[in-house]
């Protein structure tokens, strides 16, 4: 029983600690994609995403 208990405690702590970290990572990935589609200054990125950038009213040209 004792070992069981300590095992569950060991499991629970990282779950709490990593929840915020994982949420942060997901949001950061979103930001990276957002910037490459919407703001990346290279002509290729601009031309490929041109109509999307105009349609979502990102500053363009």
């Amino acid at each position: 029983m004792h070992t069981n208990n300590s095992a569950s405690l060991e499991h629970s702590a990282p779950v709490v600690a990593t929840k915020s970290l994982q949420l942060f990572a997901a949001a950061a990935l979103g930001l990276v994609i957002l910037f490459s589609v919407g703001f990346a200054p290279m002509d290729i990125a601009h031309n490929a995403a041109h109509d999307t950038r105009h349609s979502v009213a990102f500053p363009c040209h």
């Binding site: 979103g30 994609i33 999307t52 979502v56």
Partner: peptide, 21 residues
Amino acid sequence: VYTLLANFLMALAYSLILASA
């Protein structure tokens, strides 16, 4: 096709941020 792809990526980025928040 590129516009579709860019629309998807834009929506994915927005969803990731919104879902995390």
